[in-house]
């Protein structure tokens, strides 16, 4: 293998993770829609999960399930089980976070009728009590929030 190809071969997984992370960060910073921000957060989370799974990888190793024919005492025979366990729990926490985030979004939509950030800020900054004129924009809700 030429030298530059070896260089790429050793690092391309990390590069992909870096780009995934930047895409998630871009979504969280620049998108105006709160739902798209949550999607950016999910992408960011998954890039971190991939980073840990990449760190657990070893060449010529098998999955961390004991096989009687493969010696357990040679550590290089099995992938590192610790990052896999940590990421297993991280995925579950990620699902829980996404569930709560979407619940908050539903509540925001119920109360304000929008999940666009700029419209939301406008509605938050406008004086709350006189929402008689804004009543027609979300008909079923009365009262301030």
């Amino acid at each position: 293998m030429p030298e530059w190809l070896e260089y790429v071969h050793d690092r391309y997984a990390y590069w992909a993770i870096v780009f995934l992370m930047i895409i998630g960060l871009y979504g969280m910073l620049f998108k105006n829609n709160l739902h798209k921000k949550v999607v950016g957060m999910i992408i960011f989370q998954n890039s971190m999960i991939l980073l840990f799974v990449t760190a657990a990888f070893k060449w010529d190793a098998t999955v961390p399930v004991r096989d009687a024919e493969i010696d357990v005492n040679v550590v290089g025979n099995y992938l590192n089980p610790l990052p896999h366990t940590l990421m297993l729990t991280a995925i579950v926490v990620g699902v829980a976070i996404v569930g709560v985030a979407f619940a908050l979004l539903i509540k925001i939509y119920d109360n304000y009728g929008t999940i666009e950030e700029d419209e939301l800020l406008e509605k938050l900054q406008s004086p709350a009590p006189e929402d008689d004129d804004s009543e027609d924009s979300f008909p079923s809700k009365g009262g301030s929030v």
């Binding site: 070893k58 099995y78 590192n80």
Partner: peptide, 30 residues
């Protein structure tokens, strides 16, 4: 480097002189 078996995370005895967690789990889980 990706997949290097000698990476710090996979060491049997880590730099601080303690047994590495990953190697310990592989050896004594069963």
């Amino acid at each position: 480097k990706r997949g290097l078996p000698d990476a710090p995370a996979h060491q049997v005895i880590n730099a601080a002189g303690n047994p590495g967690a990953g190697a310990y789990f592989i050896r004594s889980a069963y």
